[in-house]
Amino acid sequence: MTEDEISRIVIGCAIEVHKNLGPGLLESAYQECLCYELKNKGLEIQKEKALPVIYKDIKLDQGYRIDILIENKVVIELKTVEYFTDVHSAQILTYLKLGEYKLGLLINFHVSLLKNGIKRFIM
């Protein structure tokens, strides 16, 4: 399955979760529900995937955690914020770079219409 195919499934599942729950919950609630939907679509997911930072000869295991990694290809970073900031974009771009992934989705569930809370990042 390509990154684009995975992306379409993720967005559909995220819309389903948002349609049922609406805005206003904690990020962890959306994460659990989205993982449930993704698993039901038959996708392999890793929740809170550790992403170490490697610098020269040292490996920092306490680096970062990807909210959801799908099929070891697509990074999903979830938010429940008023609006995205440059820090949110930098965060997902860092995950893509460190993990050598090609596609990432930044999804903000704290919006009235979910399509307005999705940003796609390509490396």
Rank of each mutant, 00 (worst) to 15 (best):
K47W: 07
F109R: 00
G22K: 05
I11V: 15
E44V: 09
F109P: 00
C33R: 05
Q46E: 14
S28N: 13
I11R: 07
I45H: 03
T2N: 15
I54F: 05
C35A: 15
E16A: 12
Q31T: 06
A14L: 04
L60K: 09
D57R: 10
P52Y: 02
E3F: 03
R65H: 08
L69K: 02
I66G: 00
E27W: 07
Y64G: 04
G12D: 08
L114Y: 05
E3K: 00
L93A: 06
R8C: 13
V87N: 11
S28R: 11
K115A: 02
I54A: 00
I9F: 09
Y83N: 14
Y64V: 06
S89V: 14
Y101S: 00
D61V: 07
S7K: 03
I68D: 02
L69E: 05
S7C: 04
R8K: 13
G42R: 08
L98E: 10
I70N: 01
C33D: 07
V10L: 10
E16R: 10
I58T: 04
Y30G: 00
I58Q: 04
K119L: 10
H18S: 07
C13W: 01
G24E: 14
K47L: 09
L21T: 07
L96C: 09
L113W: 09
T80S: 14
Y95H: 03
Q46W: 03
R8L: 12
V74S: 00
K39F: 02
Q91A: 09
N20V: 08
G63C: 10
I9R: 04
V10S: 04
E44W: 06
D61P: 04
D61M: 11
V53F: 14
V53Y: 15
E3D: 14
V81G: 12
M1A: 08
I122E: 12
L98H: 07
E5W: 11
I92C: 04
E37D: 08
S112M: 13
E48G: 02
L26K: 13
G104D: 05
Y83R: 14
L60T: 04
I68Y: 00
F121G: 01
G42T: 13
E5G: 07
L34P: 01
D61C: 03
L106A: 05
K79W: 04
K49P: 01
E16G: 03
N108C: 13
I92F: 06
I122N: 07
G117T: 00
E27T: 03
R120P: 03
S7M: 08
L96R: 09
N40I: 13
L60W: 11
C35F: 06
R120S: 06
K59E: 11
E5H: 10
L43A: 06
D67W: 00
I68V: 09
E32H: 12
G22I: 02
N116M: 11
S89N: 13
L106R: 01
E5L: 10
Q62F: 09
V75R: 00
E27Y: 06
Q46C: 02
K39G: 05
K73P: 00
Y36L: 08
L69T: 03
K59G: 09
L103R: 13
L21R: 10
L51S: 07
